[in-house]
């Protein structure tokens, strides 16, 4: 039932975590379709299953039941290496805690996905530089992550997510560790990417962050309880 232009199609998705006291259901029959070029904000109270859902979308975790089609192809029966290739080229994942490698220069951090894509050294350098320049951090290329601020680290993480030109950016509370001013700088970057045609799905708790998206999805207790276009704030 895949349709052209659908980046994500999730049907009857269930996820239960295995715990010592038995399975703990977190997602219960989630259905969602995201078309190419959309900008979706995922909201909902803490513990409602947003991160669990994002991890499955990002091919970091597997669903217990249901179907997930990424760019028209089913994800369930893929091998670990195929999933790795999807994470490498099709998806760019941005974490709340940046997740840069502390012992590597910013340039090497940004270039790391290219290493796994088998890109040559010169080309890796060139593209990493280009993206660092784009997020305004070209002059810190040789610095280590701990020398720059949180907002700057998140920019580097976004540069890394973009380096293989993915069709989809997934971001789980990318501004969760940042002050509101820096948050809006980061969101401006997402707006720009979306205007260039990249599909974005982004988790946030804050309404004003969610305002950047064109569509809002609300989770409650492992289910989607609201799905509609963003209403312009009063």
């Amino acid at each position: 039932m895949a349709q052209a232009g659908q980046v994500i199609r999730v049907e009857h998705l269930y996820k239960a975590y295995v715990t010592p006291v038995g399975p703990f259901p977190v997602l219960k029959d989630v259905n969602l379709t995201v078309a190419a070029g959309e900008f979706v904000a995922v909201m909902g109270p803490s513990g409602s299953g947003k991160s669990t859902f994002m991890n499955i979308l990002g091919c970091l975790d597997r669903a217990s039941e249901g179907h997930y089609l990424l760019a028209g192809r089913s994800v369930e029966e893929r091998s670990p290496d195929e999933l790795a290739a999807l994470r490498n080229r099709t998806i760019g994942f941005v974490f709340q805690g940046f997740n840069l490698l502390p012992r590597m220069s910013l340039q090497d951090n940004v270039a790391l996905p290219l290493v796994y894509a088998g890109v040559e050294l010169d080309e890796r350098r060139r593209r990493a530089r280009e993206l660092l320049d784009r997020v305004g951090l070209g002059k810190y290329a040789e610095s280590l992550p701990n020398r720059i601020s949180g907002g700057q680290q998140q920019r580097v993480a976004i540069a890394r997510a973009l380096v293989n030109k993915p069709a989809l950016i997934l971001a789980d509370e990318p501004t969760g560790n940042l002050d509101s001013h820096t948050s809006h700088e980061i969101m401006a970057l997402f707006d720009e990417l979306n205007s260039e045609g990249i599909t974005i799905v982004l988790v946030t708790h804050e309404q004003d962050i969610a305002q950047h998206a064109k569509r809002q999805v609300r989770f409650l207790d492992g289910q989607i309880v609201h799905d509609g276009p963003t209403e312009v704030a009063a």
């Binding site: 990002g58 970091l60 670990p80 290496d81 790795a84 290739a85 994470r87 490498n88 080229r89 994942f93 974490f95 997740n99 840069l100 490698l101 790391l112 996905p113 796994y116 894509a117 890394r160 293989n164």
Partner: peptide, 15 residues
């Protein structure tokens, strides 16, 4: 954690 990050950005098991 480092291994997790590498896997998340596309490292294969072989890498």
């Amino acid at each position: 954690r480092e291994i997790g990050i590498r896997l998340a950005i596309g490292a294969r098991q072989g890498n």
